[in-house]
Nucleic acid binder design. Structure first.
Lengths: 221, 221
DNA sequence: CTCTAGATCTCGGCC
DNA sequence: GGCCGAGGTCTAGAG
């Protein structure tokens, strides 16, 4: 905890006027400067790897020069008053265990393709193309190929992504014609307009309902 | 500083096994859980606004329940041992003063459009369209319209963005034909290929040189 | 290593 | 308030 002033120079230049803040130095050399509010993003910071040099200004204040050895980013911290100072060894953290995001949605839809369109069947998940994998490759009731792009939130870039896949897939005479389905828990209006203008079908997915169906089916066995 | 274990449930579920970490509680109620490494992103957190309730487990350990009043996110922190505990009022921070990013690049190019192509002149910055503003609308030496998209780093999504603008602008008989220039300090190879495949001209911009020209011109007055 | 796409993104601007 | 674009994005995963 210190009254400090900070100047950053790198991809941009930024300045923090003098105020009381939290300075956190991590074991890997990284530095975080936090205010008493806002979200988790620090006011300013320096990512590892970086080096910290401590010096003194002509006025007798503490000066920290933090610099990155690979980029030319620098952070200069002037410390006018130390209100609190403590140091602890934490060791290596076992890390965060995550569960259930877009991947789970893809798994559920892969098991229940017909929930996207009647008669739809799965060909394969993560169907490979030269520009990246298509989330689901399916066939409709008439045997035509259908590429499915799945998002938690459907926005314009997702439509662009599916459009690129469709353009590429439709060059393959063995697959042509390939149609597209854009599936998401929520589809933004602009994304829907763009998708439908390009002949892509939009489907909003009810995650909880789908999970319910899935659980019910598994209970049958 | 505490030995703790954390469970988050909300947009996803996540778990942090017991380990020693930094717990930061901010004045606005937000909570950050940091390890002794990684970058500025906490292992887990709760964004403001949120409420913290302190309780005790059957084993006598401290339990913090942090919940959001608007979403249904919850964070449960079990504290097994407190290694250090300190509290300070920091007050409101004057905040970060930023300078010089994409906006500055746009200003410089608006003042020196001919650096993008010989004879190019500015019509207007932030030229409005139904799907968003075009960074620079210009005219070439023959009087044809030229839409310019400016990025610090030129990647595929920037090319897609310009492509959408061009498609829309070219529907306007008063503007047609509109050509495109994709300007960036650095253009990724894949973005360049895509742009050139679509007839979009790529220009890499030397920010420092441009600033030098600009400074020199201002010194003349 | 690069490139791609997601993120409990965060943050700011504009409407 | 929402939507949209940018970020010193960061981060994980695939090729």
């Amino acid at each position: 905890m210190a009254r400090c002033q900070v100047d950053y120079a790198g991809r941009l230049t930024a300045h923090l006027p003098m105020a009381t803040r939290v300075l956190m130095l991590k074991a890997d050399g990284s530095v975080l400067i936090h205010a008493d509010g806002g979200s988790y993003k620090p006011l300013n910071w320096m990512s590892p790897p970086c080096n910290l040099r401590e010096g003194t200004t002509d006025d007798g204040d503490i000066e920290w020069m933090v610099s990155s050895p690979k980029s030319d980013d620098t952070l200069r911290i002037l410390i006018f008053e130390i209100l609190h100072d403590t140091s602890h060894e934490l060791g290596i953290d076992p890390g965060l265990q995550k569960d259930g995001v877009e991947k789970h949605l893809q798994e559920l839809l892969a098991e229940h393709p017909a929930s996207l369109a009647p008669g739809l069947t799965l060909v394969r998940r993560e169907f490979p193309t030269a520009i990246g994998p298509v989330d689901l490759m399916c066939r409709d009731s008439r045997g035509s190929s259908v590429a499915v792009e799945i998002k938690r939130r459907g926005e314009i870039d997702g439509v662009e992504q599916l459009t690129r896949y469709l353009e590429l897939l439709n060059r393959d005479p063995l697959l042509h014609p390939v149609s597209g389905i854009f599936a998401a828990q929520l589809i933004k209006p602009q994304a829907r307009v763009l998708a439908e203008d390009r002949g892509i079908t939009c489907v909003t997915v009810d995650y909880d309902a789908l999970r319910g169906i899935d659980d019910a089916e598994h209970r049958l066995f």
